[in-house]
Amino acid sequence: MATQTHGEAPARTARTPALAVGESLAQFFSKHPERRYVMFGGKGGLGKTTFSAATGYWLAQHGKRVLVFSVDPQASLSDIFQMDIFGKGPVKVMDNLWAQEIDADRHIREYQDEVRAKILDMYGLDKVPDEIEDYIAAASAEPAMEESAIFDSVVDILSEGDYDYYVYDLVPLGHALYYLSMAKVYDEWIGKITHLREEMREYEEVAARMRRQKEMAEDQILGELQYIRTRINAASRILTDREKTAFFFVVIPEQMILLDTRKAAELFARFEVPVAGYIVNRVLPPELADDRAPAYLRNRIEMQRGQLAEIDRGFGKTVLARIPELERDVTGLPMIERVAELMYGDGASP
């Protein structure tokens, strides 16, 4: 990988401006200042992290306080910003821009400790009973645990921070859908046990009334259930909020990717995720396809031309940007700045 020191301007050869499309990304943000939760979704390796970083950079440059965060256990924000930020909370990258990578394992460990401390505190014990301790350890090893922990920390991030914009570098599509379906399942689960608990409460009241006992202890479990419900709803509400969320699909002009993206878009629609638009990445500059170009390159450009026409037919005006393939990978602030210019360089401001 080519390394580069900060501050040194990257070579600006092949300065291909993003091709004009429907509405531009910058116009989108300028028209919809209320859309504060920005998400980039798509298959792995298409440029979600790059666009998240560049969007954060552009917004921060325009004076907005921005947090770019990732929930991917194989997060690459550390790589793109060339800083070690994993599990360190929000780390300042530049003026107005913070980046954060969630360490799910640590979140789970802290959560287990909280549960243990609560048990010791509630019952005045010195040590958590073995049976309970085993249960805590076993529950934490379940596969759904990590996803839930991540989900929960996203709620923390979104509800505690005071940023103008939150740029959410999503995990690949399947996982994002899993989060959403999980929110629905959780909500139903909570609904059922809340109902059960309320019924228990009613019977307890009847018994207390018959026995002329006036006072009943407050049901702490019901309180806890309400709390869990608000947490779950907060997370899924943000993902599906038409007013505040801007969800962008990242695609590249290749048939497989387009087919997968269409399927994913249908699934997202089913979960009522409002898709704000599509960004096409890795477009080979057409001017490279002159007679002297090798057949390999000409063929690829020809193939892309066909797929781009397909993209225009399929997604029409919802294609908000086409970003050219760059001559090197995007790491470090100068390269991020260059991508931000390609994405948002048409003069509109947020």
Binding site: I119, I136, I221
Partner: peptide, 18 residues
């Protein structure tokens, strides 16, 4: 059980009932 994560939140309250 579906969501073990949130079950753990309830665990302290049900310890005496187990």
């Amino acid at each position: 059980v579906m969501p073990p994560y949130y079950s753990l939140r309830l665990l302290p309250f049900v310890v005496p009932e187990i």
